[in-house]
């Protein structure tokens, strides 16, 4: 079996991502369109939540990807710290703007959904608070990359920040289980296993939307990592040029 580490070679990564990117992008667009159009136009109102239930098709996939993007950055950061593969550090860097956008979407759609359902835009609930902290960690992570000129030092420090922030990524996922209090319900899909099933009419478009957001993340991650690899090469060439 071919080793996964061959993709740590920037040339091999560029070659493979080059042919993967169009397919993943098209699949992402199709899944998001299917999930969101189906969810928005062809699902009925919930008997308690009314039409606000349609926000689930945006809020849940975005929240899922906000956490998973950070966990992906954690894995890439560990690979950088242990094996010093530049592509993994650059992949973590490329994932951050996607992750911060997903977190912001989850926070905004959550607030907009919370206002009519809970009577407030915001509450210092364990899950909401840990999500807000995760958002701040994303901003800090991006700012740290920008602030340090030497790319290897930047990769080292951002990797450490990523390890620390992972506590909040996991906390935002499991906060409801840990504290068992606050306004936010448990994970939407595990509620299915707890005897209050989400109707199949909502679950199917939600699966499409979740798959679409995951594929969109992969497409943007591949595109972003390709850009970072090129930017890194450009920086190396300019340094060589300056040194004569």
């Amino acid at each position: 079996m071919a080793s996964i580490w061959r993709y740590a070679n920037p040339r091999k990564f560029m070659e493979t991502s080059g042919w993967l990117l169009p397919g993943v992008s098209i699949l992402a667009a199709l899944c998001i369109a299917t999930g969101v159009i189906w969810g928005f136009f062809f699902t009925g109102e919930d008997y308690r939540q009314g039409s606000t239930v349609k926000i689930v098709f945006l809020h849940v996939p975005a929240a899922l990807m906000a956490i998973n993007a950070w966990l992906m950055m954690l894995v890439a950061s560990l690979i950088w710290l242990i094996r010093r593969h530049h592509v993994s550090a650059l992949a973590a860097k490329a994932a951050a703007p996607v992750g911060v956008t997903m977190t912001l979407i989850a926070l905004i759609t959550g607030a907009v959904w919370g206002q009519p359902m809970w009577g407030t835009w915001w509450a210092w609930d364990p899950r909401l608070t840990s999500f807000l902290i995760l958002f701040l960690f994303y901003l800090g992570y991006i700012a740290l990359w920008q602030a340090i000129e030497d790319p290897d030092t930047a990769a080292d420090l951002t990797s450490v920040l990523c390890l620390v922030g992972s506590v909040f990524a996991l906390l935002s996922r499991y906060a409801v289980n840990f504290w068992n209090q606050g306004l936010h319900q448990g994970a939407s899909l595990s509620v299915v296993d707890e005897g209050a099933p989400m109707d199949i009419a909502y679950r199917l478009p939600l699966y499409f939307a979740m798959a679409g957001f995951a594929l969109l993340f992969i497409a943007l991650l591949l595109a972003g990592t390709r850009t970072e690899i090129r930017a890194r090469r450009m920086q190396a060439l300019l340094t060589r040029e300056r040194m004569g």
């Binding site: 969101v36 928005f40 109102e45 009314g50 039409s51 606000t52 349609k54 926000i55 945006l58 809020h59 975005a62 979407i105 905004i108 759609t109 907009v112 959904w113 206002q115 009519p116």
Partner: peptide, 16 residues
């Protein structure tokens, strides 16, 4: 038909 929550649903979709 989004009923009384049309603004909230519209805002969520537009922002996303």
């Amino acid at each position: 038909e989004l009923g009384p929550y049309a603004a909230e649903v519209g805002l969520a979709y537009a922002a996303t």
